[in-house]
């Protein structure tokens, strides 16, 4: 990579950031969506997953259980399940990763837009290496997604008392790497599917299962085995596990998982998809 390639990386980061700043609606929608999840799921299920709401007054009189003891047991059950924190903390820390994950696929959409609106040709005819151009673009989008996640994490400080502020940078690093990888995947898909409809269809088919089989909404431990297996192959799982670990100190993964292993797996995933996106963009021509 020579000086001009670095310049090209910088120019594409600049472009993606400038576009992001100028499209307020996108910022709003990317932040509002997780916010809705947090409010609707977090408050709704949060109340169910809490022992405080067990109403003993309607129980038949032959049930001889000390209500306090029961609440203690149930409460312990749930906190163990969610790694030692309440549900809303569990959910919002997963949501930080999910926001960046969902945002990553917008990069793919923007490549298709650029194809249709012609800007892609401008980048294809530039003397800077294609690899640096696409890498700059991925970096720019990953930075934007990480900023979105930062907003969610800052929000989590308001709704939850168990967030470790000092863990935030480490958590963001996991999220950034994961987002870079999925950005690469999104771009690779967009270079294969030139129609917006085709791309959207694939992305919808992909994101929904990945989102639910990652530990964002419910723990991996209680999943059926087949689901666990899929989750193991889902890179988002490791970003959720790792970033949640740094934010709350909890271990909500399967027994073999640990933050270092998460980092290693995410790095491998991201390296692979960065290379794939680069190769595909290198080959891109006006013929497809």
């Amino acid at each position: 990579m020579d000086d001009r390639d670095l310049n090209a990386v910088a120019s594409m980061i600049y472009r993606q950031l400038k576009r992001w700043i100028s499209s307020r609606s996108r910022i709003v929608s990317v932040i509002v969506q997780p916010l809705l999840w947090i409010i609707l799921l977090g408050l709704g299920f949060g109340a169910i997953f809490s022992a405080q709401n067990i109403d003993t007054s309607t129980w038949p009189s032959f049930v001889k259980i000390n209500p306090e003891l029961l609440k203690n047991i149930v409460s312990k059950y749930f906190t163990t399940l969610f790694g030692g924190v309440d549900y809303i903390t569990y959910l919002i820390t997963g949501m930080a990763s999910m926001t960046a994950f969902m945002g990553s696929f917008i990069s793919g959409i923007s490549v298709i837009w650029d194809k249709q609106f012609g800007f892609l040709k401008e980048t294809l005819v530039a003397p800077a290496s294609r690899r640096s151009i696409i890498f700059g673009r991925m970096l720019g989008d990953a930075i934007i997604n990480t900023i979105h996640s930062t907003a969610i994490i800052l929000l989590s400080l308001l709704v939850s008392g168990s967030i470790n502020i000092w863990g935030i940078p480490a958590a963001l690093a996991y999220i950034f790497i994961m987002s870079l990888g999925f950005t690469g995947l999104g771009i690779a898909l967009s270079l294969r599917f030139s129609s917006m409809e085709g791309f959207q269809m694939i992305v919808n088919l992909l994101t929904m299962p990945l989102m639910f089989m990652s530990g964002v909404f419910y723990p991996l431990k209680t999943m059926p085995d087949w689901m666990k297996t899929i989750a193991l192959f889902n890179p988002l799982t490791y970003a959720v596990h790792g970033s949640r670990y740094w934010l709350t100190g909890t271990d909500t993964g399967l027994s073999f998982m640990n933050p270092l292993l998460d980092l290693a797996i995410l790095s491998i995933f991201t390296t692979i998809f960065t290379i794939i996106a680069m190769i595909l963009f290198d080959r891109a021509s006006l013929e497809d």
């Binding site: 310049n7 090209a8 910088a10 600049y14 472009r15 576009r19 401008e122 530039a126």
Partner: peptide, 19 residues
């Protein structure tokens, strides 16, 4: 052109791409 950006930014990005 990138319609979302200003005239200046379109020029600026091009310049950076060309070193």
């Amino acid at each position: 052109l990138d319609n979302q950006l200003t005239a200046y930014d379109n020029m600026y990005i091009h310049g950076k791409l060309y070193g």
